[in-house]
Simulated assay, not measured.
Amino acid sequence: MTEQTCFRCGARTPPYDIVNAASSDGTYRLLCSGCFNEDMAQWADIVGFEHPQFTPVRLLDADGDSHEFHFRSLLLGDQISLEAFELAGNDESEGYRFQILDESQSDPFVLLGKLVQKMMRALSVKHLHEDASGLQVAGTMVRGRIEWDGVEDGRLPCVVIDGKRVEWNDFGAILMAFEGWQFRLELLDPSDEA
């Protein structure tokens, strides 16, 4: 994982904690989340905003497998976003990812508690299982995240289910077990409860 340099403070920062932020002159700068939040607090006239930083945590999923989550907070004007994500090598389209939004003046530790509860609920359920014929839907509902397939000019997404990347064609093959069934597709903002 190649670290990048924050334009403002010069800190070497992992790519998951960098924001490509527009400036008033129309140029873009790479900022660490702390510098981005300072700029946003100044722009939104928020006095006394402190950039929260949290130590990574490990949580177990329904199979007892451990997942390490890193956190990033971003001030978005009158709201704050707290994100938790797994690092899956250099591929940002893998691993679990969670987000919660609240008012900018919210207590960051209360938000962290809410986010960890959301994460634990999601990790307690498996939507796919593998048998001799390959990946299968564990029940009749699948929750996941839509991601870019990584192919330049690609027109098909991939999905991330149970923290694992599943190519679109493979997902279609999984769904063939339900040929003739009806389905409901509901798209939710990452901060909503899935």
Rank of each mutant, 00 (worst) to 15 (best):
F98A: 02
L75H: 01
K114I: 01
I146F: 11
R145Y: 02
S73L: 07
L123W: 01
R58T: 15
E68D: 10
R121G: 00
V125I: 12
T55G: 11
E68P: 09
A122D: 01
D131C: 10
Q42Y: 03
L87Q: 05
E130V: 12
E86D: 05
T55S: 15
Q53T: 14
C158G: 06
S133R: 09
P108N: 03
E50F: 12
M141G: 03
K126N: 10
F49L: 06
M141P: 00
L87W: 00
D107P: 10
D39H: 05
L60M: 15
G89I: 04
D39C: 06
E86N: 10
D65Q: 15
L101W: 02
L128C: 02
F98G: 03
K126R: 15
A84K: 08
Q117V: 03
S81F: 02
D131R: 11
V47I: 11
S66L: 13
E94G: 08
V110C: 01
L135V: 04
P157D: 00
A88E: 00
D45R: 14
V151Y: 04
G48F: 07
G150W: 06
C158S: 10
K118F: 01
A122N: 02
K118A: 01
G89H: 04
E152W: 04
I80P: 00
A44I: 05
E103A: 11
D61P: 15
E92M: 07
D153H: 13
P56F: 11
L112P: 06
I146G: 06
R97L: 01
H51T: 13
E130N: 09
D63Q: 15
L112H: 08
I46E: 03
D102R: 09
D65F: 12
A138C: 04
S104K: 06
W148V: 06
V142I: 14
D45C: 11
D61A: 14
L59T: 13
K114S: 08
S106E: 02
S133D: 02
L74Q: 08
E50P: 08
S133A: 10
F49Q: 06
H127Y: 13
R145F: 05
R97N: 01
G77K: 07
E147Q: 10
S106P: 03
Q105P: 00
S124L: 05
K114H: 09
G89S: 05
P56R: 13
E130M: 12
G48T: 07
L123F: 09
L101R: 13
A138S: 09
M119D: 00
F69G: 11
L115V: 03
E50N: 13
R155K: 12
A41Q: 05
Q79N: 09
I100F: 04
D91L: 05
H127A: 03
D91C: 02
H70A: 07
F49Y: 14
P108H: 05
A138H: 09
D65S: 14
M120Y: 00
F109N: 08
R145C: 04
K126A: 07
E147D: 03
Q105D: 08
K114M: 09
M141L: 11
M120E: 09
I146H: 05
L59E: 13
E130I: 12
H51W: 09
I146A: 10
V57M: 14
R145P: 01
A84W: 03
V137T: 04
I80V: 12
G154Y: 04
D153R: 15
